[in-house]
Amino acid sequence: MNESIVAPQGVEDLVADERQRSAERAQRADNRRRILQNAGIGIPFLLVLVAGFVAVPNFASSSNVANMLVNAAILAIVGYGMTLVIAVRGIDLSVGSAQALAACIAAATVNAWGPLAGVVAGIGVGALLGLFNGLVVTQLRVPGFIATLATMSVFRGAVLLFTGGAPIMIASTAFKSAATAKFLAIPVPFWIAAVIGAAAVFALSSMRFGKHVVAVGGSPESAVDSGIKVKRIELLAYLIAGAAAGTAGVLLASQLGVVNGSISAGLELQAIAIVVLGGTSMAGGQPRIAGTFVAALLLSMINSGLNLLNVPSFYQYVALGVLLIFALSVDGAQRAAVSRMMKGSK
């Protein structure tokens, strides 16, 4: 034994073996991830669905279902934008304030120039605010969470100044009926959310932009080396998140009919919760639009159930906090499991 130990088997075998093991490890890690992702959203979804039907009176009434679908749609649209931002390793805490500002400006525009102008104004304002966030993050190099924490405050101040603290009533019935109109027995906002979601899925899986988003979030250094303009992708993600918040704001204004400067407070928490619950990892590079969509439905069911049970609204805070921490724990567990797998433990 003191001289040289010679390879016990051929080199080619060793390499082939290692390749095999590596593939198996990846397969196991992938399975584990999928199980955790699907369980993280699927089990709560089913539990809440069943609980709602069994324990909550009027849960399945057609008006409540329609209401839940509209709420879910508004939430999901904000969630898509957030999904994108989180996929590029960012975060947008200003979505609530941005949505409020967009909704109020949309409402004022509807009153002044009609519904179509209102829609354009709302989405446009959202996009502008998103652009502003993106510029602060990419050009001033302020970390996303703190930049948007600051703009959350700035936008909120702006909307309160815009409304002067007073509510804005929307006069146009055409605009107000949009949120409750139905197409094939399903509320129009839900269709809108579904279509935007499908477009987002396509963009992420089959378009250049989607690959770049995954690259920027998955490995920023690789993205730079591949000649991807990382800052532009980040900027676009924030811009889209703002536009999504604006779009949802228009729908919200239509649903409520009356808007004021303090609506949508705490929306950022709901949006982050559904994104993470849907399986998009906080580590970046893993957007899951479909998961966000399902999680939006779940959260909307929870909110509606608690409302129907006359639970004081404070408990909804608690529920949301718990839900978020649950979602993040699943995300953490999933990442830990995957990294254990990749290292090769059994």
Binding site: A215, E221, S222, A223, G227
Partner: peptide, 20 residues
């Protein structure tokens, strides 16, 4: 020298990343 691939993407996507 460093590995500059995106682990979440497929081989093909990585090869043509940036010039799809």
């Amino acid at each position: 020298q460093e590995f500059r691939l995106v682990p979440q993407l497929s081989i093909a996507d990585n090869v043509f990343l940036g010039h799809e």
